[in-house]
Design a protein around this nucleic acid. Structure first.
Lengths: 205, 205
DNA sequence: CAGCATACCGAACGATCGCTCGAAGTTCGA
DNA sequence: TCGAACTTCGAGCGATCGTTCGGTATGCTG
């Protein structure tokens, strides 16, 4: 995996990183629309306005670009999730907060999310994607822990917690495919909708 | 879209079609694992044991192959769904039957399903995929109709039927990514789990 | 058995792929 | 203000892409 060449002079570092992120965001949009493999570097030069050489100055390689997209998606989400479960609150409250943060994140990084889901087969198979897989796993674990805690303290009672978690992951991940900026429901409303769905289905007797 | 060259002699037609379907099934497996765009025709010649010429004898083109995979997935599923809602039964029974048929279909055509989900961006954008989009839409409409009927006759009461449908589509589609042939839960158990989730969440007051 | 439809091969085609690199232009720090 | 660091260009690299096609072998059919 080739690396880009960031400037050593600190004064230029900020400008470099801003432009780099701009390139990543543009690439994410194009990847989401056309698919990662189906997008050529030529497509990206057109979308970014940079020529081939200029593009590689910022990204290192096409795969590195994909990695960056995944990292920009998962890292801040995981950090938010950890912050939420760090403070004391009932499991149901944690679940609602997690879902709201998650949906807001998806809304703000819809293209990133679509690419991440679309390239599942790359992420799942290749050894160099182990860290990405680990981040995703860690996030899912946080959700499972919250559901487990709800079961343990008697406020939730799922027929099958494992299946419930998988259902939740499915519905939320799927959201990226239909979510529109000016849709009928806001990300928070969607999050609450999913949360109520789970809490009603798992209402303690 | 190039067309393959099926034999006119009826005696050979059966053999041709059997082998053709074998090729499609193999291709679906490889596509699901590596991705459609990332799979080269060379990969397919190795997976099928056919040389390039022999392969094209059966498939016409790579895109045609993708189309066949989608059609093999959607057409029989849609037919089953129509048969289910054709007979008289309570909405909840229809829902359960639909989910069972759907999950069984996913289990039997896991690779097809993964490819279909993975290549969403192709299917969504290109005009020649209109019929495929229409089939998917028709299936979703059948599901929505069942939920709407349940609301109308008072046996179901969803906070937001539209969101519930989207959640359902999400969780079921996502199932293909984690379903294992010898998993803890059978397709029917998963279907029932999802069905109970919805019915509990949408239990009439 | 004659003869054509079918099955399959594999070299080769033009196009396009991701990426490199030397050079030119620009900006920063001393 | 001068040289080094940085940014960007774009022609062009070797590799690989999906596909074609003339060929041969193997049936089926009359």
């Amino acid at each position: 995996m080739a690396t880009a060449t960031p400037p050593t002079r600190p004064a230029l570092r900020a400008r470099y990183e801003r432009k780099q992120q701009e390139v990543v965001a543009t690439a994410a949009r194009v990847f989401a629309e056309r698919g990662y493999q189906a997008t050529s570097m030529q497509d990206l030069t057109e979308a970014t306005g940079l020529a081939a050489g200029g593009l590689y100055h910022y990204i290192g390689s096409k795969e590195r670009l994909l990695f960056r997209i995944c990292d920009e998606l998962l890292e801040p989400l995981l950090e938010q999730a950890r912050a939420i479960v760090a403070h004391d609150a009932p499991a149901a409250d944690h679940l609602r907060e997690l879902l709201r943060a998650w949906l807001a994140h998806i809304a703000a990084h819809r293209a990133h999310m679509l690419v991440f889901a679309q390239e599942r087969h790359v992420i799942e198979r290749e050894p160099q994607w182990r860290d990405v897989r680990r981040q995703r796993k860690a996030f899912e674990q946080i959700l499972d822990d919250v559901l487990a805690r709800g079961e343990r303290d008697g406020t939730m009672a799922f027929a099958d917690r494992g299946l419930t978690l998988l259902a939740l992951l499915g519905m939320v991940n799927h959201t990226a495919t239909w979510l529109k900026p000016r849709g009928r429901l806001s990300p928070a409303q969607i999050a609450d909708g999913y949360c109520d769905l789970l809490l009603k289905a798992g209402a303690a007797a």
